[in-house]
């Protein structure tokens, strides 16, 4: 396991929490992520995966939001 604390959100293990650092998406996808409250320093927790492993449900600012790996992969988070 490497020590780089910055990973895409899609790599976050279930039950783990992390802090949002940057979004690498643009256009409407970026806007949608911002609307969900995914701005820098937001704490996100991976809750559970769907039966086939994708999408994954995350706890974001008190709401439970499911994101596909494609979307979660464009959110860089810091794991402490």
């Amino acid at each position: 396991m490497n020590n780089n604390p910055y990973i895409p959100l899609s790599y976050l293990s279930i039950g783990q929490k992390a802090k949002v650092k940057t979004l690498t998406s643009d256009g409407s996808m970026r806007r949608r992520m911002l609307d969900l409250g995914l701005i820098a320093e937001t704490i996100v927790e991976a809750l559970h995966k769907s039966p086939s492993g994708d999408p994954t449900a995350y706890s974001i600012r008190g709401a439970v939001i499911a994101l596909r790996a494609e979307e979660a992969g464009k959110i860089i988070v810091e794991v402490n």
């Binding site: 999408p55 939001i65 499911a66 994101l67 596909r68």
Partner: peptide, 10 residues
């Protein structure tokens, strides 16, 4: 291709 997907689980 599939577009972006977000779904709230209320």
């Amino acid at each position: 291709l599939p577009s972006s997907f977000t779904l709230e689980l209320p």
